[in-house]
Simulated scan of single mutants.
Amino acid sequence: MPMAADDIAEMIKTAIPDAQVEITDLAGDGDHYAAKVVSESFRGMSRVAQQRAVYAALGGRMGGVLHALQLTTAVPN
């Protein structure tokens, strides 16, 4: 069963409350998304650590309910 973009955004915002999240359905199938997550909490973290924080927020759904996520993370300017 595909995962809704709103559900992905909500899970990320729950785990990273100050996050600005933009989700794009890349294939229109609910399985392939791009996410841009911007958070002050990422400041001082490596890009890998930032992405791990987002994946952790998704609670193990990557590779299962959520097939693919193209992830971009950043700190606010």
Rank of each mutant, 00 (worst) to 15 (best):
K13T: 13
T72S: 12
N77E: 14
L58N: 05
D6C: 08
S39Y: 01
Q51S: 15
L69N: 00
A4S: 10
L71D: 04
Q50M: 12
G30Y: 05
A57Y: 11
H32R: 10
N77K: 14
G44D: 14
E10C: 11
I12P: 01
V48Y: 14
G30A: 08
G44Y: 02
T24F: 09
A27K: 12
A27P: 03
G44P: 02
N77A: 15
G63P: 04
M62G: 01
L71I: 07
A5Q: 03
I16P: 02
V48P: 06
R61V: 11
G60L: 07
V65T: 13
A49Q: 15
A57H: 10
M11K: 15
D29R: 03
A57F: 13
A27G: 10
A4G: 04
G59C: 10
G28T: 04
V65Y: 06
R47A: 15
V37Q: 01
R61G: 05
D31E: 12
Y55N: 15
D29M: 07
H67D: 12
F42P: 00
S39K: 01
L58K: 04
R52S: 11
V37F: 01
S39N: 09
A34N: 04
G28N: 09
A53E: 09
V65W: 08
A57G: 10
A68P: 02
D25E: 07
R43G: 11
S41Y: 06
A27F: 07
A35P: 05
T14P: 03
L71K: 04
L26R: 07
A15D: 08
D31S: 10
I23W: 03
R43I: 11
D7I: 05
K36M: 11
G60N: 04
V21S: 04
I8N: 00
T72F: 12
M1P: 13
A57L: 13
S39Q: 06
A35L: 06
A34H: 06
D18C: 09
A9Y: 00
T72G: 06
K13D: 08
P17Q: 10
A19C: 10
L58R: 02
G60I: 05
I12S: 00
L71Y: 08
